[in-house]
């Protein structure tokens, strides 16, 4: 993981150096935006990695396989989708959680459904969405996106 991080960091640094030659103030602003976004997300990242630690320590692979394993089929797919729908958060937070599910032997389609609905289905934000667009739109969109999350999971199962 360290090498990937270093390579990526080198690439981004090169991009910053190149851009600072053509527009210095804008590049400085980019760096400020980057630092601000990271700082805002830090408490959440601490929470996520804390949860991943608990997950790996207290949930046995057998338990994960029983609830979200391939043998459980459509139930685990639905469970993954629902788990994602009730929680909202940035994609960055979903990846480590999804990673530990996969490691513990969860069915990949269920994990994919979890990630997609984590980001694009929001039960908590549904009232707000209805007040901005309309109740009809909010229900339709969340419903369709939930179905889509399950479909993406299933299709990914064939693909993998």
């Amino acid at each position: 993981m360290l090498t990937v991080g270093l390579i990526y960091l080198a690439l981004i640094t090169a991009a910053y150096l190149a851009l600072s030659r053509c527009n210095r103030p804008k590049t400085v602003e980019s760096l400020q935006v980057a630092a601000r976004s990271l700082r805002m997300l830090l408490p959440l990242l601490v929470a996520i990695f804390g949860l991943v630690g608990l997950f790996q320590e207290f949930l046995t692979p057998e338990q994960v396989q029983q609830t979200m394993g391939a043998a459980n089929g459509l139930v685990s797919l639905l469970l993954g989708g629902l788990l994602g729908a009730i929680s909202i958060g940035p994609p960055l937070a979903a990846y480590p959680l999804a990673g530990s599910m996969l490691d513990a032997g969860a069915w990949p389609p269920a994990v994919a459904a979890f990630i997609v609905s984590w980001i694009s289905v929001g039960i908590v934000t549904l009232p707000f969405e209805a007040s901005v667009f309309s109740l009809r739109f909010a229900l339709l969109r969340n419903g369709v996106n939930f179905g889509l999350a399950l479909l993406i999971g299933l299709l990914l199962g064939f693909f993998l």
Partner: peptide, 19 residues
């Protein structure tokens, strides 16, 4: 172990956001 990668990704996030 992923902090470096996260920091790098946020560098890109900043660039995209501004440019």
């Amino acid at each position: 172990s992923v902090l470096l990668l996260i920091a790098a990704v946020f560098g890109l996030v900043g660039l995209l956001q501004v440019w």
